[in-house]
Design a protein around this nucleic acid. Sequence first.
DNA 1: TTATTTGTACAGACCGTTCTGTTTGAGTAT
DNA 2: ATACTCAAACAGAACGGTCTGTACAAATAA
Lengths: 195, 195
Amino acid sequence: MNIKHDKENVLKTGLSLFCNKGYNSLGIDEICKVTGMTKGAFYNAFKSKEQFLIEAILLYAKNNVNRIKTQLKSNTDKPAFERLFQFYINMLEVQPKVNFMGCFINNIMSELGAANDKVGLASTQAFDEFIDAIESTVKDAQQNNELSSEWNSRQITELFHSTFYGSLTRAKSSRDNQQSINTMKLLFDNLKTNK
Amino acid sequence: MNIKHDKENVLKTGLSLFCNKGYNSLGIDEICKVTGMTKGAFYNAFKSKEQFLIEAILLYAKNNVNRIKTQLKSNTDKPAFERLFQFYINMLEVQPKVNFMGCFINNIMSELGAANDKVGLASTQAFDEFIDAIESTVKDAQQNNELSSEWNSRQITELFHSTFYGSLTRAKSSRDNQQSINTMKLLFDNLKTNK
DNA sequence: TTATTTGTACAGACCGTTCTGTTTGAGTAT
DNA sequence: ATACTCAAACAGAACGGTCTGTACAAATAA
């Protein structure tokens, strides 16, 4: 009953590997090698590779919802619109310097979302949680009259995030984030009130 | 010089298989089985699976650029803005009924674009060609004063297409295209002049 | 004939998973 | 305290399957 490997730590490591290599290109052997586990320990802790991925998605969602909330709630001296805009630009600017793999959820949606029901569901839930976390700041921006109130705040958030994902995918392939930054900039400029 | 199998036809079939299964989940054996080829014939015609994919991407790009141009140039009695909008809505509405795999280029970008330089380049080129094909109709809409001329037509086209890709990825995972249709609708509504 | 194309078997690597046996340590009885 | 029990955790070899790509002979074309 001696648990040598903390499940959350293993998931954290696996998550980082999934982020860098995707699902199919990452083998159990590599997960074990990096975490210092053996196959026996791995399959004792996780039912399957698919289940491991799903638990990793849940962990990623939890961590990122917290990150999103913290980030959007900080610098409250700045207007909500500005915080939203910087939130997205920051992800496009900083992440590519680390690696060009974009957002884990977006990648998994593309790689497995359509083929695997469980993974599709888990990644859709993660996306929804992100929308939830961002929407309140969109509402703030609307109340400040920085963002048009003509449309539903959830719809606007969906638009922000879908555009972000689409342009991130493009940045990943073209190895150039400038175009994506311009795209997000145009979207925000356009939705801004009193242009 | 008995070439039993027309290369373009084989690519066309392979393309359809890639669209349905992605890259990693589709084996050479299955390509051969469906096209009626044998391994010998396949590897005589194509250097590798990777090269086969790249040729398939080029074919897909060529075919779709033609399709895009034809579609956007038809119904010219309707205004350019309306044609653009219907072009995107149509892809979101009709494609899911066939399968939920979305756009081949978007999928390949996500699955391999970051990991494989050649594939990243080919899919980026395909994306650029799509933008080229769509941009002229965006220009028309701007000249008709249906779309804001405040921004560069290419930038606007990039925004349309990135949002389309992002929302398509979401639709694929959630098995629901309604949200994506609403997202595109909001984007178009917002960019429309004289709202 | 000579060169090219095709069919098939197979090499060799890799994958996720299972299997057997071992270790570990808390709980229990002595 | 000491010995025993037992179930969870672990180690890692082995398995069955899949994959891309190759070898090479047979078939076909030039």
